[in-house]
Design a protein around this nucleic acid. Sequence first.
DNA 1: GATTGATCTGAACGATCGTTCAGTTCTATG
DNA 2: CATAGAACTGAACGATCGTTCAGATCAATC
Lengths: 197, 197
Amino acid sequence: MARTQGSHSDITGPRVRAAALRLFARHGFAAVSMRQIAAEVGVQAGALYNYTPDKQSLLFSLLKGHMDDLLAAWAEEPSAQDPVARLEVFTRFHIRFNLERPEAIFVSYMELRNLAPENFTVIEQLRRAYEDELEAILRAGVARGDFEMPDTKIATLAVIAMLTGVNTWYRTGGRLSLDEVQQIYWDMVCGAVGARG
Amino acid sequence: MARTQGSHSDITGPRVRAAALRLFARHGFAAVSMRQIAAEVGVQAGALYNYTPDKQSLLFSLLKGHMDDLLAAWAEEPSAQDPVARLEVFTRFHIRFNLERPEAIFVSYMELRNLAPENFTVIEQLRRAYEDELEAILRAGVARGDFEMPDTKIATLAVIAMLTGVNTWYRTGGRLSLDEVQQIYWDMVCGAVGARG
DNA sequence: GATTGATCTGAACGATCGTTCAGTTCTATG
DNA sequence: CATAGAACTGAACGATCGTTCAGATCAATC
């Protein structure tokens, strides 16, 4: 063997993924051609197939990687004791994590329908796993009397929807710092789940 | 003149719009071809151009029509007196209106980036107008001491995001009736805006 | 410095895209 | 029943799509 494997691919590979993510976020999966991605990387379209078997796999790989990152990052968050503290950790984590990678978040929410059925199932299960993390917190809080809600599943989805909405308006350098945004949303989450203020 | 204008077009026209909306919601604007829309209507692709100058105009027309419907429907809602009652009317209205037309809601949120810039501006302004309706309620409530929040604009977007999230999980015939869903979300909105429970 | 295999080019494949248009079909009117 | 014009067909336009592949190019090893 002459060249050690991936002597270039470990440079081009990430650039392909970065370009694809950026373009998918901006124009949508179906509206972006392999030639556009290649041009962004500075390469011919055929070269992309050294890094992905096809366009569909490229999308799936991006979404799968994002969900794995999300669950891994959450697993490394400090595990607070009582449900109220854990809910605050979750709230601040979700906002920070989402604001750090707006393109991945955007693509993950918009391109689910462009996944092949078997790929969709995988991503959906990972998303469900993340939702279950929050619901477990809410359940524990309800059991202890810290929270009050008629349905923990609905509250879970409502809280996540509210928090994810930050990405639609927040811009770095705006009038609010990350910490201020986290504080505002934490107050609203508290109210929504009936936590004692 | 022989045939009265639109003797068929007033049948085919709405069918074209309905088919386009359904397909755009399911597969995305860029992934749907004019031939697919035509096939759904039972017509050749060329015939579509009796009803829209091009594909882009078809998308814009759907989104514009939806936003007009939304603002018109909200304008006809009973205008309650105090901010708390108005907020409840808004909450219930938003949920009901969105659940009645899930495809239009879905397309309106997903296909904004596929609008030509001048069309995007139009839709964005209409969306802003709708948000302003809610923010006016929140401002009035804060002024009267009914609500408590540090930023009415953020609270506006947070509430809308939370309410719109209903469409991602609600299915007619599920275990919760529309009224039960509206009640649950109204309680959460109350908490989020710091209204006296 | 020769070699070897990863990396990339450049051209090509068939398929499909949005759109146009001459000509056919249909139906409400006179 | 003749007719005028709206509605539609069916074929075609050039462009672009995802993907393939033989051959050129490159850099790390011997």
